[in-house]
Design a protein around this nucleic acid. Sequence first.
RNA 1: GCCGGAGUGGCGGAAUGGCAGACGCAACGGUCUUAAACACCGUAGGGUUGUACCCGUGCGGGUUCGAGUCCCGCCUCCGGCACCA
Length: 961
Amino acid sequence: MARKYDPEQIETKWQKVWEEQQTFVIPNPPRLATGEPGPGAVLDGKGADATYVLEMFPYPSGSAHMGHVKNYTMGDVIARFRRHQGRRVLHPMGYDAFGLNSENVAIKTGEPPAEFTEESIATINRQLRRLGVSIDWTREVVTSRPEYYKWTQWLFLQFYKKGLAYKKEAPVNWCPSCQTVLANEQVIDGACERCDSLVEAKKLSQWFFRITEYAERLLQDFDKLGSWPERVVTMQRNWIGRSTGAEVVFGVAPREGGGGAAAPGGAAAAREASAAPEAELPAPVSTAEPGPATTSARVPVPAALPGAPVNVTVFTTRPDTLFGATFFILAPEHPLVDDLVAGTPQEAEVRRYVAKAMNTSAIERSSIEKEKTGVFTGRYVVNPVTGESIPIYVADYVLMDYGTGAIMAVPGHDERDFAFAKKYGLEVIEVIESPAEYKDADGNLTAAYSGDGALVNSGQFDGLPKADAIVKVTEWLRERGEGDFAVNYKLRDWLLSRQRYWGAPIPIVYCDKCGEVPVPDDQLPVLLPDITDYAPKGRSPLAAAEQWMNTTCPACGGSAHRESDTMDTFVDSSWYYLRYASAQRDDVAFDRADVDYWLPVDQYIGGVEHAILHLMYSRFFTKVLYDLGLVGFKEPFNNLFTQGMIYYKGAKMSKSKGNVVSPDEMVAKYGADSVRSYVLFMGPAESDAEWNDQGIEGVYRFLGRVWRQVTEALEEGILQEGAGAPGGAGTAAPGLIGTPLDAAGADASRSAGRADAGRAATMAGEATAFDDSTLTSAERALLVKTNQVVAKVTQDIGERFRFNTALAAIMELSNDIGAARAAGPAGAGSPGAAGAAGSPGLAAMPTGKAVFAYALQMMVRLIEPFAPHMGAELWQMMGGSDIWDAPWPKADERFLTAETVELAVQVNGKVRDRVTVAADAIDADVLAAAKELPGVAKHLEGMTLVKEVVVPGRLVSLVVR
RNA sequence: GCCGGAGUGGCGGAAUGGCAGACGCAACGGUCUUAAACACCGUAGGGUUGUACCCGUGCGGGUUCGAGUCCCGCCUCCGGCACCA
């Protein structure tokens, strides 16, 4: 009796082998910049034989969950598949180990974050090994270890020296629960991404990375990417939020004696005021040739003397509507507000409004439902094209964050401005010819019209279409020094400092004499001190570690103190994929030659939740490092795949809901191979899927059936005795089933590329030795099915990422193998008669045996990326060795199509009968045969045939009248 | 509101413009077994008096010999962004 399928025993056996033999360790090659294929050769800056498969590294909080299992299994299938294709595959693993989770555990239990983190890492490590993921563990990276964060700090300093890391006081997002600031990207609907607390605005001095400087390149370089999900690109594009338009300078009209109400005023004075605005204008930013982002708000310095000329710049996407600008709005935070209202009758009211706005939460303020509010400042600006004075309001629907914090309001053609104008009784002018639906009987606008149209009421620009007018008006402004083309981005600089303990300390020292001083390289890393009180108190817990805080100035040796903030953990994860390439180096963060050999990552896999944060930050980092000459590529991840989530009982798995499926339990019950196969069989990998307890049973049954089919065949001697043909001997797989195979096809270039070529399996060639003329139709049918499945699985894994259909195809093959075995020799009896279990069926015939053996062998090879342990075991039992090194099977072209095909025959679009014809039958014969079918003939009777269509291999379509 | 994506049996899902429902789960019938489990074989979209036919991929139109697939107009759900000037 054949051995029972015992996943536990098989899996631990092979995991031990892989561990001991260091099977998946892949060394960096010696550099050979020859352009020739071979180890270390470089083409287009990347290793010609190098493939980098990477999954987003896990955050070590306890243990791995099913989402991890799916992520890492998917990566593993691809990594194993590429290895079979002869590639040198880098497939490393590490841990995103800094972060709030461990720190919160520390606050609750007192267990130091380092300990909790290392325990979690040990657990996940064990889980990944138990899953049989083929990882080069010699490259393991842990971001919370000093040997890693030393280089995070070093990289920060490189940014710092380039002016790309800077400290400034700014209103920032403060999470009162996490007691730290957050990056814009970490605020979701006004709430903290981690804990959902409402984020507060706080003015603090914080560290930023100047990512805005790279806004344009982050957009442009989407072209350089291989395959990325469209929606991820779209999300980043929206986040960066590029808009083109113009900046327009408005001169503030001088105060009137006594200030007062809405008197039109001082056009002449205003003209004078705006006569020399050049000094404030930004460098022109051409739309055709985008330069570095110019996003920082250009706020005019308030004049020193009250009443002196002051200009305010606005950004607008609609300079064509300038003639319709009937009022002007400043954000409540605008620095000019204070000076403008000083001494006006409106001063008290404006100050009240500003104070209230500042105290309103961000979400409340930005709620679109909220009625617009604002307050008149008592002051005016002069519209540069009309020379008219228009009132300045302060309103909180204008954001200090975007553009210049000031807008020209065009109520006729902007919905928001229209609403505001209606509420405060401000003038609405039509300057773009608007459709009748937008107007009342008197021709007044009843709603803002933002569509296309010709200009009206716009002086010399009347009649120009919108698009032309945008250009002409801006050019006119530019000539007069009152405006210019401009590009604006929603993207803000990346706020990277955090008032928390468990992160990489920012390597800056503050000296009374020298000010802000970077820590010299030879003093890195700035180690995290051991502390006992992790509780956040609004400043970093590090600030309380006095010994650590007090230090000497690296520049002058005087007394100094350290920066107590730590870095956002997204800094750690923005470069870890580079560290893998040189993980053992302690003298550099990474070696340029190593990263250039392996990167960009060929296939990156992870959750879509990182669409903006991690993926955009990493792209930014790579571009900066490229500019610094540290890497030779501009994009880190050539192809990206975002996997769907796994649900259970209708909800996202979570401990609090108690609906968690534990990977450990599942592996213990069904084995790693079943768990791996099931997570990929659940559905398309990119879709969310619901875990089904019975679903995994089915996959487990399937693997059990494959096991049985092979072991029973072995037991009955079908596999060994199938070795009737030449070529079987002298390979690493004596007496092998593969004897009908041509062993000469072994992939030589691949073996040469491997450090361990000596033990590469040699059992599989490509072309089979089967002779078409000696095959029975049943034999040929199984052979064809086998080859079709080989082709499908190859395509599904290698090109389509459709693991579910690949597995379904292997199941079909297994079903056919079972049927062939039961059916008996072709033509000998009906399926039912020969169907008793144990009957050798097709496998009883000499050639049938070879075909049968071939089918079984292919099935094992195809399933191996999914179920690598069972693959290795069965392969070994069949006489092969090291299946993980074997070349990937190729379909034999001769047996990809069946001899005969069944075609559907349609009459007027409805299937009326079927006809079986030779696969290569000519159309005329097919048509003739089709028309004779009884089911067809009766529908043709008495009708006139008007059209005949033959789709080879598919159907025949007849049209009658 | 804007931008994406998706709607197919009881369920997960499959289908280069070419026989809708592959594969699996659940279900039902059977074989084996003292029995159960395992395993194996078989049935299975809906309708209808039929071995013949009709209806079926969210809804309504269209293109085509032929539409789940392409086009137009809707509905619903999911995701992202959202007073961004």
